[in-house]
């Protein structure tokens, strides 16, 4: 009798143990399968332009909780969220400058203000303090200015949906680039639309953005340098470049003469708590 009870008890405890082990197995299997999906891309991070104020890539990935609030406040819809192709970086924000660059038309760096985690560090207050990356001139030979050509029409064609804020059209609101055709004797779109250069010009005219002297960038970001005396010029990136990507977006040449390089970006960004 007593033996039987013991046996029955053993049997039930064995059953429970089996069920527990099976559950653990299923669970581990599910997690494992989920992880497998991430593994192929785990090793190789895609270096992408991160939103203004982003910490150094490693810190940034650790700090970002993928809530998407920066996406929600961007007035030009520049910020996108990465999908599974970025492995563990799924859900973190990036900027595809060619499609829509950050033109700082929000003035106040809304994405930085919206970030709850400090992944976009609150140390950054003004556009010229941003350090997203650096512009690089990659196929200079194609550049219209290098060829001495002008530019007439819509910068990126009639189908391009990207937006820019043209202070002379509307001080507050960005409008589609296709609604603002150009007529230039020598193409200088990258310099003309550079948010840093625009701010410098405004400051030089005695009218800093929002009437705030601190908005004035201390360094130039890009200039056209004469190649010879035929009037041909080439774009040169200067120290003031913050990597916002407007020059890449506005460049009418396909593929763009200037592209953003974020591999060296945020080199000066401080740590999570800095």
């Amino acid at each position: 009798m007593n033996e039987n009870v013991k046996k029955a008890k053993r049997r039930t405890s064995q059953k429970a143990r089996r069920r527990f082990l099976r559950s653990v197995l299923y669970g581990a299997g599910a997690v494992g399968v989920a992880l497998l999906g991430y593994l192929p891309v785990a090793g190789q991070w895609i270096t992408r332009l991160r939103p203004p104020g982003a910490l150094h890539e490693e810190k940034f990935l650790a700090a970002c909780i993928k809530c998407g609030q920066c996406v929600q406040v961007c007035p030009v819809e520049a910020i996108r969220l990465a999908d599974l192709d970025e492995g563990f970086g799924v859900g973190v924000p990036y900027i595809d400058a060619r499609a829509q660059a950050c033109d700082f038309s929000c003035d106040g760096l809304q994405c930085v203000l919206a970030c709850p985690t400090g992944a976009l560090t609150h140390e950054v207050n003004y556009p010229h303090q941003v350090d997203m990356g650096v512009a690089r001139v990659v196929n200079e030979a194609q550049c219209l200015a290098v060829q001495g050509k002008g530019f007439r029409g819509q910068a990126r064609g009639a189908d391009f949906t990207g937006k820019l804020r043209y202070a002379e059209v509307d001080r507050w609101n960005p409008i589609p680039v296709r609604d603002h055709p150009y007529d230039l004797d020598l193409c200088d779109l990258c310099v003309r639309q550079c948010p840093i250069e625009i701010r410098i010009a405004e400051c030089a005219a005695g009218k800093p953005p929002s009437g705030d002297e601190r908005q004035c960038p201390p360094q130039h970001a890009i200039k056209l340098e004469p190649i010879d005396d035929t009037g041909r010029k080439r774009p040169v990136i200067l120290d003031g470049c913050v990597g916002c990507g407007v020059c890449e977006m506005i460049c009418p040449v396909e593929p763009a003469v200037i592209v953003m390089d974020s591999s060296e970006s945020r080199a000066s960004s401080k740590g999570l708590r800095a």
């Binding site: 989920a34 990935l61 993928k66 809530c67 998407g68 996406v71 996108r80």
Partner: peptide
């Protein structure tokens, strides 16, 4: 070094995905 739980936590995913689907 990445907030992995955000990738397998349904409420986090839903908010993100709905916004993405509609707005972008």
């Amino acid at each position: 070094g990445a907030v992995l739980v955000a990738a397998i936590y349904p409420p986090a995913i839903i908010g993100r995905e709905i916004f993405y689907a509609v707005a972008l």
